Simulated assay, not measured.
Amino acid sequence: MREAVIVIPARYASTRYPAKPLAILRGATGMERSLLERSYRAGLRAAEETPGVTGVYVATDDDRIAAEAERIGAPVIMTDPECPNGTARVAQAVQRGGLDQPIVVNLQGDAPLTPPHFVTALIAAMREDPARQVATPVLRCDREALDNFLADRKAGRVGATTVVRDALGNAIYFSKEVIPFTGSLKRHDPIPVFHHVGLYAYTPEALALYASLPTGTLEVIEGLEQLRFLEHGHKIAAIEVSAPGAAFWELNNPSDVPLIEGYLKRMGVE
């Protein structure tokens, strides 16, 4: 069995939400935990439920985040402030931390609602096809999620990411816009929009490749790091997952806090 490791990249200087990893989220019983703690706990749950996951690490360049990670018992790997995105930070953490697992999972630090089975499905997809270099989960939107996406865009907020796939399940494109266009969609039609879940799995070779590739134009325009792979002709397997009875939403803007707290309450997460 190919072993895996989970790395949570976390930075303080977020453009849309400075100090985001330290934002406080209240759970079902009013328990206050930082976003970083909730993301780390999500990583631990995934590690417990997925055979062959050997550890969960926080990768950061900020002493305040490192202090919070140490408070919650998370091992920390310090990285450079110049890392432009989470993938680059994970790549550097793998190198600096001496991580030698053949599968590296990037659990985004703003996705505390990530169900463990998303991680399990992603690692399974990497294990079943050794040719895969990068994989990421996608979740078909329900009506509530689609309405939330469209409300964000109508209000001028840059929110969640959507993705379109080819017939083989590989990503064609990722966007902060809602794609494909749904203006002619009737309320009873199947929803063709897939939410890109903030989670990746790479081989160490793919991470090294990423660090060597020049920044792409679309990557800059969209602000989506994964587009660098697509722009340079490398595939990303978009693995469809489901979340029956659960909800998934990232913390992208301060306005997302009450939404995520509502989901935590609904799901009974302390």
Rank of each mutant, 00 (worst) to 15 (best):
L185I: 07
P244N: 09
I191R: 03
G109R: 09
V193A: 07
V241N: 09
H234T: 01
R165Q: 10
A47D: 02
I172Q: 14
R89G: 00
T114F: 02
I239R: 04
F149E: 04
A160V: 00
V5C: 11
L139D: 00
Q133S: 13
N253P: 00
L35V: 05
C83V: 08
V193E: 04
I172T: 12
N106C: 09
G216M: 13
Q226H: 12
A93S: 05
P51N: 00
P9A: 11
V90P: 10
A66G: 11
A74Q: 12
Y202K: 09
R153M: 01
P115G: 11
R64F: 08
D61G: 13
L146G: 05
K154D: 13
A124H: 11
V138N: 02
D61L: 03
Q92G: 01
A91C: 06
Y57E: 11
L207C: 06
T87W: 04
A160M: 15
R64K: 11
T182H: 12
T29N: 15
G233A: 07
A42V: 03
R16Q: 10
E37Q: 15
E70K: 14
I221Q: 15
L207G: 08
I123E: 02
I221W: 09
L218T: 14
G43K: 01
N253M: 05
E70C: 08
H234D: 09
G73C: 10
W249F: 00
E205F: 07
L209A: 10
A46S: 13
L35C: 05
P214W: 11
A67M: 05
I103P: 01
T182R: 13
R41I: 06
T136M: 15
L230P: 07
G233N: 09
S14Q: 03
D61Y: 08
P214K: 11
G223N: 10
E225L: 04
P130C: 02
D152E: 15
P9F: 06
G43C: 00
L224R: 10
L44T: 02
A111C: 12
A88D: 15
G268D: 06
A246L: 15
T87G: 13
V58Q: 09
G55Q: 04
V164H: 00
P9V: 06
M78R: 15
L199I: 08
G216W: 11
G159D: 04
R33D: 03
A145L: 15
V7D: 05
R64P: 00
A69R: 03
E37W: 08
S34P: 04
A23I: 02
A238K: 04
K265A: 15
Y17F: 15
E222T: 04
Y210R: 09
K235W: 01
E128W: 00
V58P: 07
P81N: 09
S255Q: 13
V220D: 07
S175T: 13
E261V: 02
A69C: 02
R89L: 08
K186N: 13
D63W: 03
S175D: 10
K265W: 07
Q108K: 01
L22N: 13
T217K: 14
V58E: 09
